[in-house]
């Protein structure tokens, strides 16, 4: 079980209103990702759910029970912190067993659960080491191990991969996804990296300044962004926004086109390539188009395009996103 419902939840620090009234429904077994730029309140929201911060008003329900004033431990949620927050003077075994020990579980049962968690996470050989003797990825797994032995209603991850190097991040991302497949427990995951959000989530919650901009599946957000913010945040490289006369031609205030949808070689936009980034699999071009501005274009493969060349660009009409004056999609 792991249904979490937030209704009209707010949070203020002094005079600063961090989270305006916010409603959110998280269903059992879902992998929900909170994503947004830094300072958007996503970590605060996670800490409110965890109970590490008190909400200023509103109601939090976990599995049908009112958990608004419940202490963190009573909510049956487990959290993996950005810094892993392992206990440095305890061995890996004791770290993982700590929540069980606090729950006054028998020693035999503790051992069984720790062994089991260690087996799932490939930590069996490291059980007697201290956290200081482990690599970043191993520490991350210990932190996850400490969370899974409690068999919580939901896991909370607070930017867990941001301290790892790029290669390890991809591996750990897959491991967490696999863990979710096998445990089928609700997971709430906070990140500022939209790639992590797109690859892992069942449901993405895009946050901006404490407001929920849009909730939906990764592809829903990609294909049908509700407003300018979501359109700009989801997708890499960022969507191109065109304003002015060109947008007015299409009957909108802002015209959006994704770099991967722009076709090169024909069309009625003409521009000079300012910068070409050759990644092998793709080429990213920054094209200065007269009357429109800079456009980012993603070309698959290698097309021999380089700085200073003049190219023609075409944006197919069915791949255009139109936004009105208030930034909402039309």
């Amino acid at each position: 079980m792991g249904n979490i419902t937030l209704s009209a939840v707010t949070k203020t620090f002094g005079d600063v209103n961090v989270i305006p009234p916010l409603d959110l429904q998280i269903n059992d077994g879902e992998f929900v990702v909170f994503v947004g730029p830094s300072g958007c309140g996503k970590s605060t929201l996670l800490r409110l759910i965890a109970g590490l911060e008190d909400i200023s008003s509103g109601k939090i329900t976990i599995d049908g029970r009112d958990a608004t004033d419940a202490a963190p431990a009573e909510r049956r949620l487990a959290m993996v912190f950005q810094s892993y927050a392992l206990y440095p003077h305890m061995s890996v075994r004791k770290n993982i067993a700590f929540p069980l020990k606090m729950a006054k579980m028998s020693q035999a049962e503790q051992d069984k659960k720790v062994e089991n968690a260690a087996r799932i996470l490939n930590l069996t050989n490291y059980l007697d080491r201290r956290p200081g003797q482990l690599s970043g990825g191993q520490r991350q797994r210990v932190a996850i191990g400490r969370a899974i032995v409690r068999e919580p209603a939901a896991f909370l991850f607070d930017e867990p991969l941001s301290n790892l190097d790029a290669a390890l991040r991809v591996t750990m991302r897959q491991e967490i996804s696999e863990l979710h497949q096998s445990l089928k427990t609700t997971m709430i995951y906070v990140t500022h990296d939209q790639v992590e959000a797109m690859t892992m989530a069942d449901k993405i919650v895009v946050l901006n300044a404490g407001n929920i901009e849009q909730v939906g599946s990764p592809l829903e957000l990609y294909h049908k962004p509700r407003n300018l913010f979501v359109a700009g945040f989801i997708g890499s490289p960022k969507m191109n926004f065109i304003t002015g006369a060109e947008a007015a031609k299409h009957g909108c205030t802002t015209l959006g086109v994704r770099p991967e949808h722009v076709e090169v070689g024909h069309g009625d936009w003409e521009g000079v390539i300012g910068l070409a980034e050759h990644l092998g699999s793709d080429t990213f071009l920054k094209v200065q188009v007269a009357g429109i501005g800079d456009l980012t274009v993603r070309v698959p493969g290698e097309r021999g395009l380089h700085h200073g060349q003049t190219v023609r660009l075409h944006a197919p009409a069915d791949k255009l996103y139109r936004f009105d004056a208030s930034g909402m999609a039309m």
Partner: peptide
Amino acid sequence: DREQMEAAEMDGA
């Protein structure tokens, strides 16, 4: 470390 204290709090200590 504050996060360690919070982790322990969540662990029910």
